[in-house]
Design a protein around this nucleic acid. Sequence first.
DNA 1: CCAAAAGTGTTGGTACTACACCCATGC
DNA 2: GCATGGGTGTAGTACCAACACTTTTGG
Lengths: 244, 244
Amino acid sequence: MTGENTFLDGYDPGAFPPFAVAVDLAVFTIREGQLEIMLVRRAGHPFQDDWALPGGFVGPDEAVDAAAGRELAEETGLTNVAVHLEQLATYGAPDRDPRMRVVSVAYVALAADLPEARSGGDASDARLWPVESPDDLPAVALAFDHARIIRDAVERVRSKLEYTTLATAFVPETFVLADLLGVYRAVWGRAPDLANFRRKVLATPGFVVPVADAKRQPTGGGRPSALYRKGPASLLHPAMLRGR
Amino acid sequence: MTGENTFLDGYDPGAFPPFAVAVDLAVFTIREGQLEIMLVRRAGHPFQDDWALPGGFVGPDEAVDAAAGRELAEETGLTNVAVHLEQLATYGAPDRDPRMRVVSVAYVALAADLPEARSGGDASDARLWPVESPDDLPAVALAFDHARIIRDAVERVRSKLEYTTLATAFVPETFVLADLLGVYRAVWGRAPDLANFRRKVLATPGFVVPVADAKRQPTGGGRPSALYRKGPASLLHPAMLRGR
DNA sequence: CCAAAAGTGTTGGTACTACACCCATGC
DNA sequence: GCATGGGTGTAGTACCAACACTTTTGG
């Protein structure tokens, strides 16, 4: 009792059960105005032929965060592209993997312009699935507890758009304000008012910075729009709340 | 390469390094208008005589969340008291414990009226330390990466007061609005405007529910205040943001 | 070739809500 | 003396409308 209460005392290597620690990645992107998540098809048992979040095991001398970054690079092939990566939560139910005890640390990644299939490795069985409202899950069978993880990840992204400038992680390096509004529309299922949105974004120092004298080529007619680049700010004050 | 990308394929028990998985608890309470955190004194190496977050290892067939609940009950002695407990984040640097590879899942717990020392177990080396602004850390030597965890935990609690009704987790079962305002003062270091605060709390359905015809005994003179109980609501809409 | 129409981007205005700050009243 | 409630100015949002700049269409 005493040894249990005092952290790590009575330590005896081998006395602790072998846990495997894995990372799972919820990689989101926006294509054609829709929020999509990358899933990989499972080749072996269990959950064979089901779809799962990309991920893998943490190495013996590897930081958990580093493992997430490594897996992200391996799965997406985006090595030096600016991708937002943050920890989501840890899932540790004892029966979440039927083969052995695996504790999984889930991460959320946001990227713009993700290619359909990963470029590195065997690209055959990885693809993007739309995350549709209101159930927020891809319409495929999901392995392990990944349905739960995806739900949590979607909610994380939705709420983070409210009080951070994270929307810029979903657009390419230069973009127009309509693109940024489209991020909110895709993630929330509804867009904030355009006029207020533009006032808010432009009034928040460091949210976006204008690209000098640059205008986007008009595609199908209409006034050409101004180009912007991601700014240094990360927090939104006050927050931009989605309505009820 | 192929086996690494496909989750859990090429599985071989024993091929994975032995990780120990632990839980750390950031247990907060408010005493005399001050935010305090529970720390335990380490008896053995490493970090002997330093202070650390209470915690322990996850059992072989125990869910990680369940381990946090168990440790909380063991450390605080609060068995059936309503305590808020939520996962904070996972800390997995390879060298965070000098003896072996330990991945720790940190939790935040909020409680009202925590006794000075834990009631169960050896109460001698556990106590509450004030979390003072602006550095937000107890003025003691902290073991492992627990200083970082405490910083993250404090920030979590601060931000959660903004958009949830979590402040009620810090007050006893029945309370007056001034007590609730005191929670915000203690956690944020500054209190919102009293008049607006009371309008907001009372206008939010389910934040607090009045205890019928109950008034608190006037302690030092003045009008007796109305008693309230925690309501069923958990989210605050719109948020109550702390100023800059 | 020029003028009008249509489409998109940009800006402004008003009603309403919520908050900061202050003050009056009740017990 | 503390609890409660009201009042005013300001900021931010929802909603609406107009204007600017471009391409397309039609004479």
